[in-house]
Design a protein around this nucleic acid. Structure first.
Lengths: 106, 106
DNA sequence: TATATGTGCAACTTTTGGGTTGCGCAAATT
DNA sequence: AATTTGCGCAACCCAAAAGTTGCACATATA
């Protein structure tokens, strides 16, 4: 099951994980302690995040440190770019488009 | 049921709707024709998008044109901002953090 | 006024997703 | 060598979400 980066971010726990490990890499157990949640539940979220490339594992003995992958997160930024001009321009172009459609109907 | 903007964006059909109406406002029927999907299914997605404020309805007789709300989308951009510095800096700070943790363990 | 069209709402079915439990394995500890 | 610890994997349960069907209602059109 190939995971989607948008779907990965939809879950609030996974967003919290990303915010945490953006500061410092953590093991699954360490994450589970931060949230009031079982290790296995956290592990499932880790799997989703890892499958879509948002986090990367780093083995250290029997512990695994997961760290954040900013490059993958940039894909969001790329997707958002198509809308960015719309909130940056004070002059709202949507109203223009809408009225244009209405005129065409007449 | 208050909808979450992250969850709203998670669905590929809803993202397609946003991309479509960012260009020009559309009615539910017009959207359903674009996708291979029933009007009612599209209407459900519309409801989700509307509840979280990403789109706004504009009544015109018996038709309803839904248009994109860029301001709401900017909330997503705001959340993304916390990670932006990480992919902008060429020098990857994560490796530093990771090695720091390892040292602390010793 | 009768009919067609565009829409939302509610009930139902099917699929997906988050969480728990139980297990096995490998690395550390005794 | 035996035990503890950290982890992933698989099976299962339950809640939520996506899609379908049927309906009601309001606005156009004949």
């Amino acid at each position: 099951m190939k995971q989607d980066i948008f779907q990965a971010i939809a879950d609030p726990t996974r967003r919290a994980i990303l915010t945490l490990i953006a500061i410092q890499a953590l093991t699954p157990n360490a994450m589970a302690e931060k949230f009031d949640m079982s290790r296995q539940a956290v592990s499932k979220h880790i799997k989703v995040l890892q499958e879509c490339g948002l986090i990367k594992p780093e083995q250290s003995g029997r512990e695994i440190y997961y760290h954040f992958n900013p490059k993958k997160m940039k894909e969001f930024d790329n997707w958002l770019a198509q809308f960015r001009t719309m909130w940056e321009t004070k002059f709202n172009q949507l109203d223009k488009v809408l009225s244009t459609i209405k005129k065409q109907k007449k």
